[in-house]
Computed example of a mutant assay.
Amino acid sequence: MATSGEQSRLLDTATSTSGTCSCYLNSASFNVGLNQQISHAERKKSGDEPGVPQQAPNGHHDCLGNHRVKGPFLVGPYSVIVRQTNEYVPPDQWSVYKLTEETDTFNRSLSEKLNPPHFNYAMKVVIGEVEQVREGVHPAAWARAGALLLRAPAVFTVGTGRSGLALQMAAMRFMHLGLSAHVVGETTAPAIGPGDVLVAASGSGSTSRVVRAAEVARDQGANVLAITTAADSLLAKTATEVLVIPAADKQDFEGTASEQYAGSLFEQSVLVLTDALFYTMWKSSGSQARELWRLHANLE
């Protein structure tokens, strides 16, 4: 274990990597909103985000004001061990140990299997593929989708698996805009009716639960926004507006459209594109961030 003086020096060094992130978006256009998110991710990856110092080895900055460090990582002859957590861990709660031959061997064994170059390559793949998707989407279709959402008496989202989770996050943002937003299947979701909008996501466009929900929505006079990779799918045929994402579906096992596993690129794109859509709607509304904040949950 490090002495108190040595530990203090290490903590001073480690806390110098902490700070408060400043992330500013300054355009209402869909394309610019999406570019901002991608370039922000690139800056965060490289540690060049304005106001954010370079991160410590294996440090992670999640851009929400939370600065997390996952260990072990090396600071000189020491190994800093931090429990993996989604919450900020104050440096004075870190455990600092001098390396022994045993821990050094353990760390080297891990690094041979999971090393920084591999992770850096993975980040480039993920961010690069999302950038390719950005180049292939049609901003006009997304702008029309935003107009439908802003006019709707109520907005519903439906999806399965990870794309469903991404749409749950979109529903939260729609609620922050003051829209009446609901997730299909939740016990408090009301009936869909004329003029309402259903946002439905399915990579293949053939997910039975999603297609069935879209058909019911159209039968009830609601509009359907179909987010899919397949423009000629069953889901697309029920839609008022088809939002095609040029990504791989889950069964692209040969990696022809994406190096990533299964539908990862589609699911990532659903989140990024709906966030860009929210950003466009927010900026066009003229609302200030403080106005949206009043709708954030206060029962947690």
Rank of each mutant, 00 (worst) to 15 (best):
I81S: 04
R83F: 01
T85N: 09
T85E: 14
E87W: 06
E87I: 06
E87T: 12
E87Q: 11
V89M: 02
V89Y: 00
P90Q: 07
P91M: 04
Q93H: 06
Q93L: 14
V96H: 03
Y97R: 01
Y97F: 13
Y97A: 12
Y97D: 07
K98I: 14
L99W: 01
T100K: 02
E101A: 11
E101D: 12
E102S: 02
T103N: 10
D104H: 06
T105E: 13
F106M: 14
R108S: 08
R108L: 09
R108V: 12
S109V: 06
S109Y: 01
S109G: 01
S111E: 12
L114G: 04
P116Y: 08
F119W: 12
Y121W: 13
Y121L: 11
Y121R: 10
K124L: 15
K124I: 13
K124C: 14
V125L: 10
V126K: 04
V126Y: 03
I127S: 07
I127K: 02
G128H: 06
G128W: 02
G128S: 07
V130P: 00
E131R: 02
E135I: 11
E135Q: 13
E135P: 02
G136S: 09
G136E: 11
V137E: 05
H138E: 15
H138C: 14
P139N: 10
A141G: 15
W142Y: 10
A145N: 12
A147T: 15
L149H: 04
L150D: 13
R151T: 09
A152K: 00
P153N: 00
P153F: 00
P153R: 00
G159C: 12
G159A: 07
T160G: 03
R162E: 09
S163G: 10
S163A: 15
A166N: 05
L167Y: 08
L167C: 04
Q168G: 11
M169N: 08
M172R: 02
R173C: 08
R173A: 12
M175K: 11
L177W: 04
G178F: 10
S180Y: 01
S180E: 14
S180K: 05
A181V: 03
H182P: 02
H182M: 02
H182W: 01
G185L: 05
T187E: 09
T188F: 07
A191H: 00
I192D: 00
D196V: 00
D196I: 04
V197P: 01
A200G: 10
A201I: 13
S202G: 12
S202M: 08
G203M: 14
G203L: 05
T207G: 08
T207M: 03
S208C: 05
R209N: 08
R209F: 10
V210E: 07
V210H: 04
R212L: 14
A213I: 03
E215F: 03
